[in-house]
Design a protein around this nucleic acid. Structure first.
Lengths: 199, 199
DNA sequence: GTCTATAGGGAGATAGAC
DNA sequence: GTCTATCTCCCTATAGAC
């Protein structure tokens, strides 16, 4: 069944645990996506970055789409958690606060995932991912209510732009997480204050 | 010199004036860039959109890079004009006001050009365009001074994100120019207020 | 200003050996 | 888990006729 060589592989390469190769592919993909965009990054570039062939990458992911979705998944999970946490608060103002802080926290923790929505095609792909749409809609409800005015929708879109650059602008990479979080929360509060859902 | 046929061409096809074909290429390019991104748009797609062949497009522009730069040029010119106009004001607060209003006006009038900076490779290309860098630096000086603090640079980056989505977010396309301009000016003022250059 | 034709290369993806 | 080899298609760009 298992040869001595197989056993030894497990001893001398503890690094080869299940999922390690997938993670390395995603790491390389995020780096290249942020430099060249999703459409500007080929599977060959990802393979070269890892020092392997394209076929090795295709062993981990069936398609480029799968890689894109896997890159975005941590952020999608973060948004879902943020919506769950906000929902557990009882007064509406506490839900607003929790949703806003959760949203900013995802941007801070998952900055890299923003590269996906920078590409229009990848962004559309993500929008077909129901978990993503649902989480965003729930957070939107907590922030500006379920029937927002046009002004509220504009404000939310402008906030989205600010959050987006926080994840993609090279000039902000050097900024510490704490300072960036504080600025984002203040900015978000100022933008959305007039449109908070009624109690 | 000019044959009768040449003359007749001018009569029956007044539409074929110099530059018309270039303009049609740019119009198609902007549309496709916004749908698929710059890297996701091929010259074949542009040609198909116009009902011609790739070679016809190459007759107007020597390369894809040239198309990208030509798409961005109206915005670059707008930024330069805005910087010129701000410079003519004398008190610093008037320069701030003029720079801010000029910047917002460019975003409103040249929304389509934002598609170029959505692509990381195209954005880098644009940054090698000295007229663009110079205009942006001048406007930055009027808004947050020539030696901004880190907080000021963060605020300016966040504003940049909001301006950027104004040009690219499909949800904002339906918003009237006047309402969007007013919201952007207010947002920009709130974001930059604490960092205005000293008088 | 538009066409056909072509060059030279890279894309995503698959088959099958090790 | 990685490889070589290959398929098919599309890419940017150019040459030269009309």
């Amino acid at each position: 069944m298992f040869s001595a060589i197989d056993m030894e592989e497990h001893v001398v390469r503890p690094i080869g645990r299940r999922g390690e190769s997938r993670a390395r592919v995603l790491e390389a993909a995020v780096k290249l996506f942020s430099e060249n965009g999703v459409s500007g990054t080929s599977l060959r570039m990802i393979a070269d970055e890892l020092g392997v062939t394209k076929a090795a990458v295709y062993h981990q992911f069936a398609s480029k789409e799968e890689i894109v979705l896997a890159v975005a998944q941590p952020a999608v999970d973060g948004l879902t958690s943020a919506a769950d946490h906000a929902e557990q608060q009882s007064p509406p103002h506490a839900r607003f606060d929790a949703a806003l802080e959760g949203l900013v926290a995802v941007v801070i923790q998952q900055r890299a995932s923003a590269v996906v929505i920078r590409d229009p095609v990848a962004a559309r792909l993500l929008e077909t991912h129901s978990q993503y749409r649902i989480a965003l809609n729930r957070i939107q409800d907590f922030l500006i209510g379920s029937e927002p005015t046009e002004e509220a929708r504009i404000a939310l879109a402008l906030l989205g732009g600010s959050l987006f650059v926080s994840g993609t602008d090279p000039a902000l990479i050097a900024v510490g997480a704490d300072r960036l979080r504080a600025t984002l929360q203040e900015t978000a509060r100022n933008l959305l204050q007039p449109f908070r859902p009624p109690a």
